[in-house]
Nucleic acid binder design. Structure first.
Lengths: 194, 194
DNA sequence: TATTTTTACTTGACTGGTCAATCAACAAAA
DNA sequence: TTTTGTTGATTGACCAGTCAAGTAAAAATA
């Protein structure tokens, strides 16, 4: 039943289905048919709206990225002290919305995709840079610039590492202790700086 | 020119070719033909020796794992104090042999593979457990058990995270500074404990 | 209001290409 | 002559992408 304005709805439905399917399978080896089927449309429609599979994957990745971005600005808005800013960034990355299995799996899959797709790599770099600057905005007032830089690198690596371990259902299974681990690092680092 | 004892040689050549090809491409989306071609044999031979592609991938992963294992025991043999043991484990993971692009890419690809292959997941878990126990052997004499446990988790996550960043050619490009980052964590942690 | 036309949306059926896996046959050593 | 090693040719499955045809809402026309 063709109604106007379906385009936006369909695109969203297909992207959501893509996230779900990729998350479930844990990789990008997913057919357009599967994704379309889950979105309740024909495979041809997915091609109609996205052209090629690669484009759909790009759009899906962008969705993940913007979702995380929105969560971030919301969390940072509530933070007042620098230390709170750091904690806010950490908290978002391990929030119930972001640290879910499917999302984590999808991220991991996209990290691999970035190896062959320069565009994907660019997108991931946007994320990395944003994370870094968010962290720096909290860390710089708390320690020497060089030290802050190192800490930001370490926190980012810690987050990525904990995501992987989450994906493997290995080690820390629950978000709370993962976040606590990173917080513990920050505390230790601040203690050492003082 | 068929000579006896080819089996072992061919298997090794094919596995090496697999590591190289996977590392180059950055994912497991690699054909048997490519791997076989690089090893200088026909695709049929690869199937002859490994049966299915999945088996070849398993064998390749196992190879990576045992290589890392050997490097580890060698490095640990030279360490005498607990602190040295910790440093040895860190150093191995960022050594010239292990922190190479192709190897890092291959690891990342296998992390994704583990999502769908329970056997791969088991293999990775072996690695994770070995890393953990190696770290613990150095950390336990230096701090309270619970604290050591946390530190081991954090170090492992840091290593994984830095591997990812290496794979994305993002952030720390050189092994030395990556290792230094982890060492810095250990130092901070020990400082806080004292 | 009734009819036609246009527009937006949707699909089934098909195609071309890729690739894992198989197999029968061949070559050289034992 | 058997054993071990090796390959070219083929098969069967899967899948991204295309296309012509279809449906119904909306807009234009009578």
């Amino acid at each position: 039943m063709p109604r106007i304005g379906m385009k936006k709805l369909r695109r969203k439905a297909i992207i959501d289905a893509a996230i779900l399917t990729i998350g479930e399978r844990g990789s990008l080896e997913v057919t357009m048919s599967e994704i379309a089927g889950r979105a309740g449309v024909s495979p041809a429609l997915a091609h109609h709206y996205f052209g090629a599979k690669e484009e759909l994957l790009q759009a899906t990745m962008r969705q993940l990225l913007t979702d995380l971005g929105h969560d971030c600005v919301r969390a940072l808005a509530a933070a007042v002290t620098p230390r709170e800013r750091v904690s806010a960034v950490i908290a978002v990355n391990f929030s119930a919305a972001q640290f879910r299995q499917e999302i984590v799996h999808a991220w991991l899959a996209f990290y691999v995709q970035a190896q062959k797709s320069p565009l994907s790599r660019r997108l991931l770099r946007v994320y990395a840079r944003r994370l870094h600057s968010n962290l720096m905005s909290g860390l710089v007032p708390l320690m020497a610039r060089a030290e802050a830089e190192r800490s930001a690198e370490a926190i980012a690596a810690l987050i990525d590492g904990l995501y992987i371990r989450r994906a493997l259902r290995d080690g820390l299974p629950n978000p709370a202790s993962a976040a606590a681990l990173v917080e513990d690092y920050v505390t230790a680092k601040l203690g050492a700086a003082a």
